[in-house]
Each structure stands twice: as structure tokens, then as C-alpha cells.
């Protein structure tokens, strides 16, 4: 158990270091790579927190597909971030104030892992207890049975969202031929195939 706590703190430290690196680095390619690393570390931490299903999804979808999408965008746009003229003072103040408010809010929250926390006393026991019987004893994974059966409409809504987003991406990137002649700065475009 002590070993696991050490790993826990190590992963959290790496997560914080990666997040700060993303904020500081100017090269967008490096920033995208750091985001992938951040996702993957997040997946590792989810595994420590006893949520392997989420960890798999985060590693595959968050660290994999997101990174590929962003690299594709970089290839179509630019790789270098221009130095910003904005002063970082105001954003920093906003962030510190919001962060302190949130930390003040956690003081009332139940301790991490407390079995009597409201999260664990509502709904959860019934899912755990009834899942095996409801799934005819053939589905040991409770997450799967909640995802696909008890809350199946959520998943249906999710697929609707993905479908809508996919259609929207296709419509945004579509090239209706005549648009190109209207653009005065078409010389600046390179490789603009959606």
C-alpha cells in the first residue's frame, strides 16, 4: 500500500510538471506531444485509482486519437506560436483566485476513498449488487453493464454527439470550388486539402 502511495505521488508530480511544460513551451509540436504524455500519465493514474476501463479509453482515445488530430491540424496550419503581447498578470490573478476558491470548496468534501461518501452511498451499491443477476451472470464487469444497459440511453446520446460532430467537421472542411477564387490571400495557403 505504501508503495502504491509513492507511485501515486510520483505520477501526480509528473502530471503537474507536464502541464507546466505545456504552458511554457512555444513550439506547438512539442506542446502537442506533451499533451499526449499528459493524457497517458492521466491514464496511468486512473489505473492506480481502480478505474481500468477509463484508463484504456483515455490511453487509446485521449492520448492516441486527440494527438493524431492535433498533429494533422499542425500540418495544415503552423508549428510555431508567435510570442504573445498580452501581459500574463491578469490571467495569473484570475487563475489563482479561481484555484483558491476551488480549494476552499474542497475543505467540505469527503476524504478521498471514504466509503461513506455520498458518491458511494447513492446508487452505487445497487449497481454492484444487482448487476450480476440482471446480466444473467455473464457480465462480471459492472462498468460495461451500466454503460450498455442501465444507462444505455447515455451511450446512445453520446453516439449522436459524435455523429453530429463528424458531420459538422465534414461541412466545415468541405471545399465548394468557387470559394477559392474569392480569396485574395490564396498564395499564403499551402496544402489546404481538408
Amino acid at each position: 500500500m505504501d508503495m502504491l502511495e509513492l507511485v501515486d505521488i510520483f505520477v501526480l508530480a509528473l502530471l503537474a510538471a507536464t502541464a507546466v511544460a505545456v504552458a511554457r513551451v512555444r513550439n506547438l509540436w512539442a506542446a502537442v506531444m506533451f499533451t499526449g504524455i499528459y493524457s497517458f500519465l492521466g491514464a496511468a493514474w486512473m489505473l492506480i485509482l481502480d478505474a481500468p476501463d477509463v484508463a484504456f479509453t483515455e490511453a487509446a482515445v485521449g492520448a492516441g486519437i486527440s494527438t493524431v488530430l492535433m498533429l494533422g491540424t499542425l500540418a495544415l496550419t503552423s508549428r510555431e506560436e508567435k510570442p504573445s503581447k498580452k501581459s500574463p498578470v491578469l490571467p495569473l490573478i484570475v487563475v489563482v483566485v479561481t484555484g483558491s476558491t476551488l480549494i476552499y470548496g474542497t475543505l467540505d468534501m469527503p476524504r478521498v476513498g471514504d466509503p461513506s461518501a455520498p458518491v458511494h452511498t447513492r446508487m452505487n451499491p445497487s449497481y454492484i449488487e444487482k448487476s450480476e443477476h440482471d446480466m444473467h451472470g455473464e457480465m462480471p464487469n459492472v462498468v460495461t453493464s451500466v454503460l450498455a444497459s442501465y444507462r444505455g440511453y447515455d451511450t446512445l446520446g453520446e453516439t449522436t454527439v459524435i455523429f453530429t460532430a463528424g458531420i459538422a467537421v465534414l461541412l466545415i472542411l468541405r471545399k465548394p470550388g468557387k470559394r477559392k477564387t474569392e480569396l485574395p490571400n490564396s498564395a499564403e495557403q499551402k496544402g489546404s486539402h481538408g
Binding site: 485509482l49 481502480d50 478505474a51 481500468p52 476501463d53 476513498g113 471514504d114 466509503p115 454492484i128 462480471p140
Partner: peptide, 11 residues
């Protein structure tokens, strides 16, 4: 969602 002494929700 974590519980002390708990494990992944696989019965």
C-alpha cells in the same frame, strides 16, 4: 469514485 481497500468494479 475510488474506495479504500477497493478494487476495479469487476465482480
Amino acid at each position: 469514485g475510488r474506495v479504500d481497500q477497493g478494487t476495479a468494479p469487476i465482480i
